[in-house]
Simulated assay, not measured.
Amino acid sequence: MNDLAADPPRVEPLGDPPVRKIIHVDMDAFYASVEQRDDLALRGRPVAVGGMHRGVVAAASYEARAFGVRSAMPSVSARRRCPDLVFVKPRFDAYRAVSQQIRAIFADYTALIEPLSLDEAYLDVTEDLKGIGLATTIAEEIRARIRAETGLTASAGVSYNKFLAKLASDQNKPDGLCVVAPGKGEAFVAALPVKRFHGIGPKTAEKMARLGIETGADLKAQSLAFLTHNFGSSGEYYFNLARGICHRQVKPNRPYKSIGAEDTFFDDLRDEAALCAELDRISQTVWRRIAEKEIRGRTVTLKVKYQDFRIVTRARSLDRAVSGRAEFLDIGCALLRTLLPTPKGIRLLGLTLSNLTEGDAPQPPKEAQLGFPL
């Protein structure tokens, strides 16, 4: 290892940083589109992935969206808005397989790929592998290849930073392309509602509305001092967004903050054995993802949603990484028991591992290999 003291001091370059070429690719109604592609009977019909008898909509086709059906909407509400809505069971293995196809296409153009989920990613093509040079041309090629190789459509946004590229990808959906050129970002942002800005959630948008901030132009009209006073350390970030400024880099190995899964039950549950059996099933899903990503973590969080939709969470942190799925499940069941018995039915359970570090998959100690009681 080199002696740090021997390294020359880093000198920051003067002037503005070089203009980046960023593409944000977002698949159109991804889960629902895969289902419609694979089942001819679903094409042209309003489709909701998930929901079924209970739970919420995971994704909705554009035919369903025309009726106001949206992801995260309770299935009862979705059915009320669209009586002809067709519910289909999610097939995450199929979605992951298509996502891998799409990422292979991205990799032909750049190594700087930051996936946000199975259906969207940032690409930095400032120095593209094919030497094309024009980000717009690259985005057009990628969209054409996705259509040809997967039978699905994607929308893309092209700009000089991540914030503008993500906004642009939503501008001409579905199957659209939007380019925000250097020097045009501030004007582009001015006309948009702040609730569309990445980094401004529903509660912050509501607070901004109470302060008279509805659009990017309204946000730009506020001073840095005003924004810092009302939004703390985020004030400077919002100040920059209103001017189309974003310094976040495309990070190919974006760290995970947590890994988890949850499920809504067909019928409300109260029995401890039945609830722990459901946690066992959920823990298998979570631990498979943990093993695939070679992640370790110290904090286990249990999420409980009651029949009246009230949500309660309980968490426990260890002074070491959780040793394996058995311990992960054991902690989850122990957290659940602190809420039992319950007079209210439980409609949803979730388990999450956080305080993550990368490394080899954790090996359980010898006594853990004997298993843990439920």
Rank of each mutant, 00 (worst) to 15 (best):
E114H: 05
F92I: 11
T299F: 09
Y256C: 08
T357F: 00
I311W: 00
T313K: 11
L116R: 00
L152E: 02
K203D: 06
L318F: 05
Q363N: 07
Y122I: 06
L85T: 09
V86F: 05
R79G: 09
A32M: 03
A277E: 12
K162W: 01
P13T: 13
T137C: 06
F67S: 12
A97K: 14
R320Q: 14
I311A: 11
G345L: 11
L85S: 06
A5N: 10
E294D: 10
F188S: 07
V194Q: 02
L339G: 03
A64R: 03
R79C: 02
T153P: 02
R337A: 10
L116M: 10
Y95E: 06
N172I: 00
L164Y: 01
F309Y: 15
L123H: 04
D16V: 10
V304W: 05
S354F: 05
D38F: 03
G50P: 07
I102L: 09
V19W: 00
L118A: 05
L219A: 01
R20I: 04
K184E: 15
D7F: 11
A315H: 11
L339T: 04
I142A: 04
K195A: 14
D267H: 14
I311L: 13
A168H: 02
G201C: 10
H247P: 00
V180G: 00
R103M: 13
L85N: 03
L224I: 13
V11N: 04
N253P: 00
A111P: 02
E294Y: 09
D7Y: 11
H247Q: 09
D93S: 11
F372D: 01
E140R: 15
V57R: 01
I213F: 09
L340A: 08
D128F: 10
A5W: 07
L177G: 10
D170E: 15
I290K: 00
V250D: 02
F188E: 08
V125L: 04
R210H: 14
K203Y: 02
R143Y: 01
D93T: 09
A104F: 02
K344N: 12
F265C: 05
M73W: 09
N161S: 07
